[in-house]
Design a protein around this nucleic acid. Structure first.
Lengths: 207, 207
DNA sequence: GTCTATACACCGATAGAC
DNA sequence: GTCTATCGGTGTATAGAC
């Protein structure tokens, strides 16, 4: 038996999703500071004032999009086969983030705007989600290290931060602009550079 | 014999340097979009209008600071002993950039603001300098690869882009905020993570 | 709830006196 | 050249009709 949902409510929810999708596009395209509420209104096809019936401020709007991203990230983590070794799951979550970005999604780190960064620190829903994601990452890194798969030269913190950073790395945009690599190759080269490093392994040697 | 420089000129030049220093601080602290001309004026201790006698626009001001950074980068490259292998010089330039940032300098990549990015692409002096730096980097990467020191899994482009990105990586700020590592340790862990990667080398193995 | 119109604040740049 | 004062434009948020 399905719960009956009023038509008006469905329509309202659908529009709210459309708004979030539009903000997602604009945010990843222009960034928070350059995105205006009028941009959003035009993209969705509603009046500027109407947006405020759904979200009480520009900050709330961005926080909603980033919270959705974090929920999607948690879902992607859950969806991974439990039998995979932790190091593989770490690589996979970087792949997932990069693919997400290449499909036009917002990067995880709102490092593009200090203004947004500050306001997010006051958003309880966002903070709670970010902490959950962070906890999962740290657990995975600990597990991978126990298995001997993480370099002794970097601490757990550095591993986690590096994964966040590289997921949002502008290198991706440069490579897209160059056009020499397709999306799949970009993801793989980023994963290789992040986990394997730039330096040749000792057994590669000079040719 | 030294050329005589009028006192007024010296005073003017000194103030101009003071302005650039102030912008450097503000830019690395608040970012381009959030930095206002009034902030700059207050920081330097002059009236807002007076800034425009030195720099005709906010964009020119930021471009001047970033151009100065690029010249400093080139100087740092020149200063490195020629007998060092290329891979060592690449590591060293990443160290230099990170140390520069930890001392409060602007990051190389203006990726924090799309607005600034766009305006820089119209600034001939900046573009010329950026191209020179880029050329030097690519030459170094090619040399390092010939010596067998660069991983076969990443192309030259990816190496160069990754160096730029990691020089501006928000991981640095996270680590500073954590306070667990001092500046020197932060630099070394970043260099280790970038060149050595996150994954344990095969000879490390599980413990 | 959605629209149009507008209040209010901020910021980049300029004008004009000294 | 430096100051004060101000213009013009933009952007968030709100008011009020429908």
């Amino acid at each position: 038996m399905t719960l009956k949902i009023p038509f008006r409510q469905q329509q309202f929810d659908a529009r709210e999703e459309a708004i979030l999708d539009a903000v997602n596009r604009l945010l990843s395209d222009k960034g928070y500071d350059l995105m205006t509420m009028e941009d959003v209104a035009l993209e969705v096809g509603v009046a500027k004032g109407s947006l405020y019936k759904h979200f009480s401020s520009k900050e709330k709007l961005a926080a909603a999009v980033l919270s959705r991203l974090l929920r999607q990230t948690l879902a992607a983590l859950e969806a991974m086969p439990a039998e995979w070794p932790a190091i593989r799951r770490l690589e996979e979550i970087l792949r997932w983030s990069l693919q997400h970005r290449l499909r036009g999604g917002v990067p995880h780190l709102p490092s593009t705007s200090r203004a947004l960064q500050r306001s997010l620190m006051l958003n309880l829903e966002y903070i709670a989600l970010a902490l959950r994601v962070n906890k999962r990452f740290h657990a995975l890194v600990r597990e991978a290290r126990r298995a001997g798969d993480i370099s002794a030269a970097v601490s757990d913190d550095v591993v986690v931060y590096t994964l966040y950073s590289r997921a949002c790395d502008p290198t991706v945009e440069f490579l897209v602009r160059d056009g020499k690599l397709d999306a799949g190759q970009i993801v793989e080269t980023m994963v290789a550079a992040t986990f394997g490093g730039l330096r040749a392994a000792v057994n590669e040697g000079p040719r």
